[in-house]
Design a protein around this nucleic acid. Structure first.
Length: 426
DNA sequence: AATCCGGGGAC
DNA sequence: GTCCCAGGATT
């Protein structure tokens, strides 16, 4: 039996660290750690009472406001959320207003925030609340948890912040703060670690102060205990922070890295309308499920890579299927966009719709343009998939863009185009 | 447990 | 460029 610590092949941690990490939660709730816990909770609240930010959703303890803000704040910064929050509450002042709104309008209010299923789930949950709880946010754990789009974090946030119940609300900030203060070396990417934190938090919450305590924890993570270079010198709990004492604050929390987004080349077409479509461009709505569900975009195809001609042919087929005829396509711009799991490099071509007379001439002369089969002529069973998928096409002007929601990438392309148009007109 | 789902700011 | 963020649903 060796007395030297051995490295574990799996975790890279020493036996000693492993010994500590398997019982890390017990260590934190132990009698010996009582002083450290009480110090933490006490000083954190003193600091919060003095330094908390004046945020719109902190001005009332309205469960609806708390809920909307928490959904918006998922993976999104406070500064980004504030203007969205004001507009959203102004447009949908109560849960009932939200429940009765058109989904189009709800998603439009979310345009640019990302993770659009949050908006749809929010409205679905509002409808649940109207049907099951007479339009009032429930305060029972199982009822809150049953709401669409409400998981462990958001349920805990609503119950603690709005109803002052001693429930944990563990997000990335909380895991970072606790990892450092209690020197927890578990991987915060693992659900198990979050569950461990949820278990110790009720024991940290001072009597009657669940709302402030949970907000204080997140506030500390946002303002002081920041990811890259924490401001330990001005931290209210630095004296007993084991991460800082061991010089580990920059190494914590431990988190396995996410995979790189896979690259995808795409080819898009910005088709300018002519005749009755003058001043507008062709857009389509994405399918109801999957990436950017139900959002609008300019038409694009996955590029095969090697041969641009093959990709252009795909685009042409797409337009031919709509019965469209167009002038030669030319390069317009290239745009990049990164999702959490995909990186798009999008080449945008531009072309102009040809008036019907020219279209007919083209058709008669034979070769250049195919005459597309009108969609109405297709067999019903062949049309079903397209309709069921939610795909839809239309011509939009700059003004129309106010009514329908585009992902940022396409907003950017279209805004660039319409700005160019205005310049050209002068 | 792994993957899918946006976007922006800090560094 | 890289990392990270006031996560949840789906499989």
């Amino acid at each position: 039996m060796s007395s030297k610590p051995k490295m574990d092949a799996e975790t890279g941690k020493t036996d000693q660290a492993n010994q500590a990490s398997v019982s890390v939660w017990e260590r934190i709730v132990s009698i010996e750690a009582a002083e450290s816990r009480e110090y933490f909770s006490r000083e954190l609240l003193v600091w919060y009472d003095r330094s908390k930010r004046d945020l719109p959703w902190r001005r009332h303890r309205d469960p609806y406001f708390i809920w909307v803000s928490e959904i918006m704040l998922q993976q999104t910064r406070v500064d980004t959320v504030i203007p969205y929050f004001h507009r959203f509450i102004e447009r949908f002042p109560t849960i009932r207003d939200l429940a009765e709104a058109l989904q189009e309008d709800v998603v439009k209010m979310w345009e640019g925030l990302g993770y659009y299923s949050r908006a749809r789930n929010l409205q679905a949950a509002a409808q649940q609340i109207v049907e099951l709880h007479d339009g009032e946010m429930p305060s029972e754990r199982e009822h809150v948890f049953a709401l669409k789009g409400v998981g462990p974090y958001t349920a805990g946030a609503i119950l603690s912040i709005a109803f002052n119940q001693p429930e944990p609300a563990v997000d990335g900030n909380v895991m970072r703060v606790l990892s450092r203060y209690f020197l927890i070396e578990d991987d915060i990417a693992k659900p198990k670690t979050r569950i461990g934190m949820e278990k110790i938090i009720p024991g940290l919450i001072p009597e009657g102060r669940a709302s402030d305590f949970n907000q204080a924890l997140m506030e500390l993570g946002a303002l002081i205990c920041t990811p890259k270079s924490p401001h330990c010198l001005i931290c209210p709990v630095m004296e007993h922070c084991r991460g800082r004492i061991e010089g580990m604050e920059r190494e914590l929390p431990i988190k396995t890295k996410a995979k790189k987004p896979r690259p995808e080349q795409r080819l898009a077409i910005l088709l300018e309308g002519s005749g009755e479509h003058e001043g507008r461009v062709l857009v389509r709505r994405r399918p109801k499920t999957g990436l950017l569900a139900s959002m609008w975009e300019i038409p694009h195809v996955a590029a095969a890579g090697e041969d641009l001609g093959v990709d252009v042919a795909q685009l042409e087929e797409l337009l031919e299927d709509r019965g469209l005829v167009w002038s030669p396509m030319t390069a317009y711009m290239t745009a990049e966009h990164t999702f959490s799991h995909i990186h798009w490099t999008m080449k945008v071509l531009i072309a102009r719709e040809q008036p019907e007379v020219l279209a007919q001439l083209a058709a008669e002369s034979g070769v250049p343009y195919k005459v597309a089969v009108p969609e109405s002529a297709l067999e019903p069973e062949l049309r079903f998939d397209a309709e069921d998928s939610g795909e839809e096409w239309r011509w939009v002007s700059r003004e129309d863009m106010r009514e329908i929601a585009f992902p940022n990438l396409f907003s950017h392309i279209l805004n660039t185009y319409f700005a160019d148009e205005e310049t050209r007109a002068k």
